[in-house]
């Protein structure tokens, strides 16, 4: 048994090393003075020159701003649509076309991005020819495309959160005299708030991270940050990208660590309260 425990933990350690060594190496080399990126220039390092260079790069900063806007709009749109879809699938019981809706919401989870990208682009081109909308391609078309695949993730998150709650909760509210809209806003919505928060963050990240679909549906002047990064790294390694990566990793890590700590705290409080309830009588 002990032997196997050792094997298990060894594999876990190796796996985590595999996940983190590339990120850590990027972070370390972001402070490297050498232009050669992977050769450590011991004399002049560590340095912040790539961070300075990054902050002076208006093109990257502009792309980052576009990405933030698109990601925020995507996340909001995807949460609205995904919540409705999740609610419909989890709570509306059987209706005609339910299986089809469910298929449409799970397919984007695994659809290769190149296929989604080409399909979206051809749709926008055809629509423009037919009805003159959307005029050209840019942030709007990127956002629509992102919402469509991100809402699938939100739907799954909301659906599985709702599945964890008794259907009878909503029935009880109806029974106590609440109209359907009241039931939604006073019972369902408060219960799924955690799912909405994580759904929003997930959709934001998916949009913020996407390069393939954006490449298909973007237009002139609407290059997102991943598109900019992609075109740079395709030409070779550049040290300021390391700096950018470091900043992103730190932001994300801080957020994730804080939210995990918060959740842990809440969990502890809840456990304590349940303990109290049991001993209370």
């Amino acid at each position: 048994m002990n032997n196997r425990g050792w094997f298990r933990n060894g594999m876990l350690g190796l796996g985590l090393a595999f996940l983190y060594i590339p990120i850590l190496s990027m972070m370390v080399f972001s402070f490297n003075n050498s232009r050669l990126v992977t050769v450590w220039d011991a004399e002049n390092s560590p340095t912040l020159r790539w961070y300075v260079r990054l902050l002076e790069n208006d093109q990257l900063l502009g792309a980052a701003w576009i990405s933030v806007q698109i990601a925020a709009m995507t996340a909001t749109g995807a949460v609205i649509l995904g919540t409705i879809a999740g609610l419909v699938l989890a709570r509306f019981g059987p209706f005609r076309g339910r299986a089809f809706l469910s298929a449409m919401t799970t397919a984007p989870l695994v659809m290769p991005e190149v296929i989604t990208g080409i399909a979206m682009l051809l749709l926008f081109v055809s629509l423009e020819q037919l009805i003159g909308w959307p005029e050209g391609r840019g942030m709007l078309t990127i956002t629509i495309a992102h919402i469509t695949f991100a809402m699938a993730y939100v739907t799954v998150v909301v659906q599985s959160r709702l599945a964890g709650f008794d259907d009878a909760l909503e029935e009880a509210a109806l029974d106590l005299g609440a109209k359907p809209a009241t039931v939604f806003f006073r019972i369902t919505l408060p219960l799924i708030v955690p799912a909405l928060v994580s759904g929003w963050l997930l959709a934001f990240t998916l949009s913020w991270d996407d390069v393939v679909i954006s490449q298909f549906v973007s237009g002139p002047g609407s290059s997102t940050l991943p598109m900019e990064i992609f075109s740079r790294v395709r030409r070779g390694v550049s040290p300021d990208i390391n700096a950018l990566a470091t900043i992103l990793v730190l932001i994300v890590a801080t957020g994730v660590v804080l939210s995990t700590l918060y959740m842990k705290h809440e969990e502890k409080r809840r456990l304590r309260e349940e303990q109290m309830a049991r001993s209370g009588n």
Partner: peptide, 9 residues
């Protein structure tokens, strides 16, 4: 309700 369906929040 059988499950009581108390609003948890």
């Amino acid at each position: 309700f059988q499950s009581y369906a108390l609003f948890p929040h």
